[in-house]
């Protein structure tokens, strides 16, 4: 960590994510809806950002664009100083695979596969061999404290355990950014706290985290809060 910083004698820390005038417009019949209106945002390495806002304010839309799952209708998205809009399908897939770990509110695990196999999926697309996959998958499952459940299918796991599997899957390729869209939304508050504890741990290990939530006590885990309203950033506070 320190060595990398020493090697780059740039005064201003390089942004991991830089959004400029980002717009995402949906057309509903003759009507246009701007899920994102004009968003400017920069996120640095090892930041822990909470994105807040009311339902429909554009949080998920923003996360999907940052996760390279969706495209803005206008504006520019720089990821590690690379323009995402210039990436082709292969490069986008590689970015989702290597640079980004995405945790969904609804877990999105593959139901017919074991926890282990679910966590292994991104590594298959990375092209790692069996042995490397085995090692990395075990480490990721260990990090989320689920090694003893790795042969269970999602249906045999509790909500909190499923979300841990999903987090392990997001971690397994060692991405530079971890994105979580309302990761505790489908969990009871005790389990939600457990998951947030896990995120705190990941942050302390040096990960860059962006977590969407509309609960203040969840946002309190982060060092920075970005508040959205009707597709615009209306507040950006650092602790």
């Amino acid at each position: 960590m320190a060595s990398i910083l020493l090697q780059s004698p740039v005064l201003k820390p390089r942004s991991v994510i830089r959004l400029e005038g980002l717009q995402r417009r949906y057309q509903m019949g003759a009507q246009f809806i701007d899920a994102l209106h004009c968003v400017d945002l920069e996120i640095q390495k090892n930041e822990y950002v909470a994105i807040m806002g009311q339902s429909g304010s554009g949080k998920s839309t923003l996360m999907n664009i940052i996760g390279c799952l969706d495209h803005p209708t206008a504006g520019e998205y720089w990821l590690h100083d690379e323009r995402v809009s210039r990436m082709n399908d292969k490069q986008l897939a590689r970015t989702r695979n290597m640079a980004i770990g995405f945790v969904f509110q609804t877990f999105n695990l593959l139901p017919r596969m074991t926890a282990f196999a679910n966590v292994e999926v991104p590594l298959i697309y990375s092209g790692l061999n069996r042995k490397e996959r085995l090692g990395r998958t075990n480490i990721a499952l260990e990090t989320v404290g689920l090694k003893d459940r790795m042969q269970h299918r999602p249906s045999e796991l509790s909500g909190g355990q499923r979300q841990r599997v999903a987090i392990a899957r997001a971690l397994v390729t060692n991405p530079s950014i971890l994105l979580a869209d309302e990761p505790t939304g489908n969990l009871d508050s005790a389990t939600g706290l457990e998951i947030m504890g896990l995120f705190d741990k990941l942050h302390s290990l040096g990960n860059t985290l962006i977590v969407v939530t509309h609960e203040q006590h969840i946002a309190d885990h982060a060092q920075r809060t970005v508040r959205l309203s009707d597709g615009d950033v209306i507040e950006d506070t650092r602790l």
Partner: peptide
Amino acid sequence: GVRKALGATRGN
């Protein structure tokens, strides 16, 4: 959708 989010290309 999940596989694509995890890094599957169109070819995959």
